[in-house]
C-alpha cells in the first residue's frame, strides 16, 4: 500500500531553488489535497539551507546533503532518488522537464517498472488514479493519461503550474543515506559560453527563426530585418543544431529565456520547449505556413505566410517608416 504523499524532486542551482521546483510544488499541493497526503520536496546537493527557505508551501522537506552532490551526477542522483522512493513510497513523483529531469525521471521509472508521463501540463486524481494531460508531437497533440500503478512518475513542463501559497515552515528531515563515490559518471567542470556574442537576454527586439528558414543562406535577409528593427536574431533549437547560429542565440528549454518587448517568430512552430524560453515576451508576432502551429496559440498576432515572402517587404516598410520619422 503506497502512501498518499506526492514527492517533488527539487532542483537547486548555485545554492538557490530553481523556479521549476516551486511550480512542481504547486502541482504536488493540488494532488496531495486530492489524495489526503502530504506535499513532500526532496532536495539533493550541498548546503541546501537557503534553498529550503523558499519551500513554505510544502508539508515536509527531505534533505540529502553531501559534498559529492554539489554538482549534478546522474549516477549518484538516481541511486539516491531510488532509495528515497523506496523509503517514502509516494503516490506520485513530480520531476521537471529539465536537463536533469530528462535523466532522472525515465531512469527512475525504468528502474522501478512504474508508469511515467512526459510533457505534463495538468495533473489530477480520478477514482484514486493519477491522471495527467501530456503535450506530445511538439505541442500539436494532447493526451489524457491514466497512471494506475504507484508511484506514477510525471515529468512536468515548466510554466504549467503556479507556486503554492506559503503555509508555514515545513518540517526539514535530513536523510541519512549513504552517498558513495561515482563509479561510471564523473563530473569534471562547467563550461560557460564563449564571451563575445551578443546577449539576447538583454535585447528589446528579437527576431527568432526556426526550421522554416530552410537554409543558412536565408539568414542574411533576416539579419537585415533585425538590423532594421534595431534588434538581434535568435533561433529555436533546430537552427542551432544545424550550426547556423551559435548556442548563445538559442531560445528555449536548453537555451536562453528571453522577455523582449517584441518577439517576431519566423518559421517557428512553437514546441513547448521553445515556448518555455519566450512566452513572457511583451508582444509576440508569429509567421508560419502551418495554421496549426502551436506558436499561434501564444502569439498576439500571427500571419499564415511563408517567412521568405514576408521578410524583404517588412524590412523595406520598416526602413521607410523609420526614415520618415
Amino acid at each position: 500500500m503506497s502512501s498518499q504523499d506526492i514527492l517533488v524532486v527539487g532542483e537547486v542551482q548555485a545554492g538557490a531553488l530553481a523556479e521549476i521546483s516551486l511550480e512542481l510544488l504547486g502541482a504536488a499541493r493540488q494532488l496531495a489535497d486530492q489524495t489526503g497526503g502530504q506535499a513532500v520536496v526532496l532536495l539533493m546537493g550541498e548546503k541546501l539551507e537557503a534553498a529550503c527557505d523558499a519551500l513554505g508551501g510544502a508539508d515536509r522537506v527531505l534533505l540529502v546533503e553531501d559534498p559529492r552532490l554539489a554538482a549534478y551526477n546522474s549516477e549518484l542522483y538516481v541511486q539516491l532518488l531510488d532509495s528515497v522512493v523506496a523509503q517514502e513510497d509516494p503516490r506520485a513523483i513530480l520531476i521537471g522537464s529539465t536537463s536533469i529531469g530528462w535523466d532522472l525521471a525515465p531512469l527512475l521509472a525504468a528502474r522501478r517498472g512504474v508508469p511515467m508521463a512526459v510533457g505534463c501540463r495538468r495533473a489530477w486524481i480520478k477514482d484514486g488514479t493519477v491522471c495527467a494531460t501530456a503535450s506530445i508531437c511538439g505541442g500539436k497533440l494532447l493526451a489524457d493519461l491514466a497512471l494506475d500503478k504507484s508511484p506514477a512518475v510525471l515529468m512536468v513542463l515548466p510554466g504549467s503550474f503556479k507556486p503554492p501559497e506559503a503555509r508555514g515552515t515545513p518540517a526539514r528531515v535530513r536523510l541519512n543515506l549513504s552517498v558513495g563515490d561515482p563509479q561510471a559518471v564523473q563530473f569534471e567542470k562547467l563550461v560557460l559560453p564563449e564571451a563575445g556574442d551578443i546577449d539576447i537576454t538583454t535585447q528589446e527586439i528579437l527576431v527568432g527563426v526556426g526550421r522554416g528558414i530552410g537554409q543558412q543562406e536565408n539568414l542574411e535577409v533576416v539579419e537585415q530585418l533585425a538590423a532594421a528593427l534595431g534588434g538581434a536574431v535568435c533561433a529555436s533549437r533546430p537552427v542551432v543544431d544545424q550550426g547556423w547560429l551559435p548556442p548563445t542565440r538559442q531560445v528555449g528549454k536548453s537555451g536562453m529565456t528571453v522577455k523582449p518587448k517584441l518577439y517576431l517568430a519566423l518559421g517557428i512552430s512553437g514546441a513547448p520547449e521553445h515556448q518555455e524560453g519566450m512566452a513572457g515576451s511583451e508582444l509576440i508576432i508569429a509567421v508560419n505556413t502551418d495554421p496549426r502551429a502551436p506558436i499561434f496559440e501564444i502569439a498576439h498576432f500571427g500571419a499564415q505566410i511563408d517567412l521568405m515572402d514576408l521578410v524583404e517587404p517588412l524590412t523595406e516598410v520598416i526602413r521607410a517608416k523609420k526614415a520618415a520619422g
Partner: peptide, 26 residues
C-alpha cells in the same frame, strides 16, 4: 504503465489575431 484515455488536438483558444492579405499587406 500509463494508458491513453483520450488523444486530441489542443482546443483553439483565442490565440493570435491573424493578419491576412498579401505579403506586402501583412
Amino acid at each position: 504503465g500509463a494508458q491513453i484515455e483520450q488523444l486530441y488536438f489542443p482546443a483553439k483558444g483565442e490565440g493570435a489575431t491573424m493578419l491576412t492579405g498579401s505579403a506586402e499587406e501583412v
